[in-house]
Design a protein around this nucleic acid. Structure first.
Lengths: 222, 222
DNA sequence: GTCTATACCCTGATAGAC
DNA sequence: GTCTATCAGGGTATAGAC
């Protein structure tokens, strides 16, 4: 956490940035707005206030810049995963507490200044870039689905929630999160200037409450 | 319904196609695979087995081909909307029947041979093409959400389902459909050779059952 | 490392004979 | 309508002086 300020954010201390960082940040900006294909190396150079040729001293080619951004995204996402030990502790606090934890976990993956732009970039390049697509499928779809399925199974064993198909329940829960990402970063990114953190959080909590109501154990069974 | 075979599908009677149709079909094929930007006019000409220059006798430019495809998509989607009168009739048959109708309505929008490719094209160009994005937002997100909100409100008034926030319920229902579209056409299009019709139908029915269970009126209240 | 200058390729689109 | 030939522009990437 000491020298973790490698990726300095936007307009702050622009002067202190290395050229490589300038290229990285300018590319994040442009790619997230226009998509990889529609950004030219000339534009990146202009935005980074350097000459075109200098870019190739830091990155092999245009594709390599995108790769670096994807790697950064991957590492940020993977870091924010909740360790397995904490999971078991959280479950005993009841479904409400766990859901709340889940929402916060989900939001933590987005609530880093530059990450919101990279999320946008990931969403718009997902069809086009195999690396992004495979990562998204594995780390943001299959792995969370399997995780939630496991959680729900445990909760059912402990009679904390109604017995339903845990796989179905995992899909019911998580698909909404993916929908929110899609809705925000693809459909509404240009118009909603509020961050996903603020807009999505409320909707996700709403969703969680609804689901909780559907699967809670009725009091009257006592 | 008589001369509605204008858009002849793939390999059938290739010879009978007009040149304009050849260009249209070749473009649908290529755009849906690679995206608009990564397809060249030369490729389209090759796929359509004509010369490059001939394309411009039928379409003003490359963009105009995409526009024609989008217009075709729009008209197919709009046609398959259920008229308002039928809606009220369906509601009285109970939530199960109505949901079933809803799923079929949704699937009907996809289950036309060439439409599956165009759906893919729409999904991958949605960030990039304002016309597609606005249509998707209006006709496939906002309008259905408003429609379902209305349906659910009526059902609640008629005490057919539990009283919950109808807007929330509409989101709970419809967001899953959008998720399925996204999952299939973006994440899994290359690998799943089965049509969305087959794969999505089962998942959507599963979802419907879960939601129905959550909002049904309990028998014991009698 | 950064700059200037440029090579080389591919793009969408057009002109004009047939 | 379809073809051949071609253009102008813009794309990535490189060479070589500083």
């Amino acid at each position: 956490m000491a020298n973790q300020e490698i990726k300095s954010s936007n307009s702050e201390n622009e002067a202190k940035k290395t050229t490589k960082e300038k290229i990285f940040d300018a590319s994040v900006d442009l790619f997230s707005k226009k998509g990889f294909n529609d950004v030219t190396v000339r534009e990146i150079a202009k935005e980074a206030r350097i000459r075109e040729g200098s870019i190739y001293n830091h990155y092999k080619n245009k594709e390599a810049i995108l790769d670096a951004i994807i790697d950064y995204f991957k590492s940020e996402i993977t870091q924010s995963n909740i360790p397995a030990e904490e999971t078991t502790n959280l479950i005993d606090k009841g479904p409400e507490a766990y859901f709340e934890g889940g929402v916060k976990m989900f939001m933590a993956r987005i609530n880093i200044p530059q990450m919101e732009k990279i999320w946008r970039l990931v969403c718009i390049e997902i069809y086009h870039n195999a690396k992004i697509r495979e990562f998204f499928k594995k780390e943001l779809l299959e792995e969370p689905l399997a995780g939630w399925e496991n959680i729900f199974s445990i909760m059912m064993e402990k009679k904390m929630i109604k017995p339903v198909n845990p796989r179905t329940l995992a899909y019911e829960y998580w698909s909404y999160a993916i929908f929110l990402v899609f809705e925000y970063f693809i459909l509404k990114y240009d118009e909603d200037f509020d961050s996903f953190m603020n807009l999505g959080l409320e909707k996700m909590i709403n969703h969680t409450r609804f689901l909780l109501e559907a699967i809670k154990i009725e009091e009257e069974t006592n």
